[in-house]
Write a protein that binds this DNA or RNA. Structure first.
Lengths: 341, 341
DNA sequence: GCCTTTTATGGTAGCGCTGTCATAAATCTT
DNA sequence: AAGATTTATGACAGCGCTACCATAAAAGGC
């Protein structure tokens, strides 16, 4: 007689079989009630629901996933959690997933495609219903997995390229370009740029290139740039601007890769007594709430991060199967004129 | 003869059995190699590893979880993602989990215990190895699940209470109290408080109470308070301070529930030409980077969010079994004197 | 009333992996 | 050298659920 093998589980952990027995139905019927799937008589459903409540039954998703070869997990791979940008995206995703059975599993790649690949593979072990990641640039191995997997894929933030399945975001190259055009039109001529050390932030690079090409079209070029030897932060922007101005006091505008750093730039100006806008224009990117609450609202570009996350998750839920057509959704961006450039 | 039932899975999805066959070993041996568990001869390990690489084998975690009645998932329930505080905590958790097999599954409760309960139950369906949540206050049902589950539990942020298993955080009541003591010692007497509308933010309430009791000890009390009718934001702080001062121009210090709102307060002062610190003290909570990068660094309390997340996850990994003793880890807090109070 | 369709339910066989026990070979004791 | 221990491997059942098929009863069509 085979020995019972439940030494490793709680003795009082009810299974579907227990529910079915108590309700006087078969397991499969109880399963249908739990999954709200297939035709069930109202009276039967009520009995099963009562049994579930009585036993405190919690379905075992591992068993469900195994049997159905699919899960309700959605893998989310984000480059960073250090500023509010990706939490905003995650919030959008989470909002779309509320009231659905799907749950986000998150991983942080540190802007490193190899880490992204490693985390992706470990996530695939859960047979996720969908994978969400940032950008269109992945390792060849990652790309292969994404293309051949039995799950939907959304690539967020960026739309300058060929997506695997769905891309939701904006053109960062264009954002950079429009930044340049806007500032030139406002009379700025001597441009500085303050970057940070994350060289794999493809979106920041695209904006930089867009800016440069706008300058070039106008017969201008960057007068100076400085790369802060650390990750992006307000402090980084403040210090970077100080260094830039020390070497090039004649700059009349400085563009920052994001609002955090741009705020730091403004703080430097306040500290050094430099008249922002009149003496030196400051331009950011993201349109963070805090920059707009300043007495002198930051001139910047509003990226629609929450919308990107929410739209992507909603699109993914529309169909379980990957359609023949790739989808690109441009959420666009708004120039916020502000008062600093 | 039973029909093959693989219509629902990719034909080219290799299983452990395929790996074992190719390596010329049994399934269980291949399994041991994958899990790095039990004694394996070097030559055998090499053969299995080769087979895995050749086939591009990805383990099926659903099957693994089912068979072993446990998963490598760690459920993380956070109240909000709207400011950087909880992403910081999440970053700490993620840092501790890197290089381990564990993966965080996140849920957002919106500071609502009922939503927390609902998400908790749906997470338990994955038989997580651990559950991380914020605060010590949960619904009775949630608490029951947490107490009886076969997983570790960490309650973050707050330590004023009885944890289920591990609590990591600081005393918010004490933080509020110290804030009051500090400001009184600096000569402030006419206190204002600007709150936001999230009444279920227990930590903010505890700080408020602590502040009040410090005032009371000194024979003082809050002169005025204003509740901004929306969630916390920089804009909320700015507007709330304007309203407070309109009604009570004689306040000499205003305490905010967090740095975001305090920054808004400073922005109002800048806009209205009020000399911060001399004319009106401003005090926040959290010690955000941006507040410290201002020309006039924000006076605030540094909460150690990253450390809390990291410490909690590390503690959870120490032992799979819940120990008899409950653990409380006080990560403390630092008063940042700053230049605004 | 006979046939088709729809509705409601159940039997059975796995999904891919790991716990448990068993076994054989290698190494260590005394 | 005989026994005790450690190391390396395998057979097998079953984790809890759902896909697949089958069946029976009820409803609809002409």
């Amino acid at each position: 007689m085979p020995r019972k093998r439940n030494a490793h589980r709680s003795p009082d952990m009810p299974t579907l079989a227990d529910v079915a027995r108590l309700a006087g139905v078969s397991e499969i019927t109880a399963s249908r009630v739990v999954r709200v799937q297939g035709p069930i008589a109202d009276s039967t459903r009520a009995r099963v629901l009562t049994a579930i409540a009585e036993l405190g039954y919690i379905p075992n998703r591992a068993a469900g996933s195994l049997a159905s070869a699919g899960s309700t997990l959605m893998s989310v791979l984000l480059p960073s959690l250090s500023n509010i940008v990706f939490p905003d995206v995650l919030r959008g995703i989470h909002t779309a997933l509320t009231e659905t059975a799907f749950q986000p599993v998150i991983g942080v790649t540190d802007y490193d495609p190899l880490i992204e690949e490693r985390i992706l593979v470990s996530f695939l072990a859960w047979q996720p219903a969908a994978v969400i990641l940032a950008g269109l640039h992945h390792t060849p191995t990652a790309r292969r997995h994404l293309e051949h997997g039995r799950f939907r894929v959304a690539e967020l933030m960026d739309i300058d390229g060929e997506p695997v399945d769905i891309a939701v975001g904006m053109s960062h190259r264009q954002a950079g370009y429009e930044t340049g055009k806007h500032l030139i039109q406002r009379g700025y001529r001597r441009f500085g740029y303050a970057r940070h050390n994350v060289t794999t932030d493809d979106r920041a690079s695209a904006r930089y290139e867009g800016l440069c090409s706008a300058l070039q079209e106008a017969g201008l070029s960057l007068v100076a740039e400085h790369c802060y030897p650390d990750a992006s932060s307000t402090r980084a922007g403040r210090d970077a601007l100080a260094i830039l101005l020390a070497a090039h006091p004649d700059l009349d505008v400085v563009v920052f890769p994001n609002d955090d750093m741009a705020m730091g730039g403004i703080f430097h100006c306040m500290h050094a007594g430099i008249a922002v806008k009149e003496k030196l224009g400051i331009f950011g990117f993201n349109g963070l709430d805090i920059g707009q609450a300043m007495p002198m609202p930051l001139s910047t570009i509003l990226s629609k991060r929450f919308l990107i996350g929410k739209t992507a998750a909603e699109k993914l839920l529309e169909s379980r199967e990957r359609p023949a057509e790739k989808t690109i959704i441009n959420t666009g961006f708004d120039i916020i004129e502000g008062a600093t450039a």
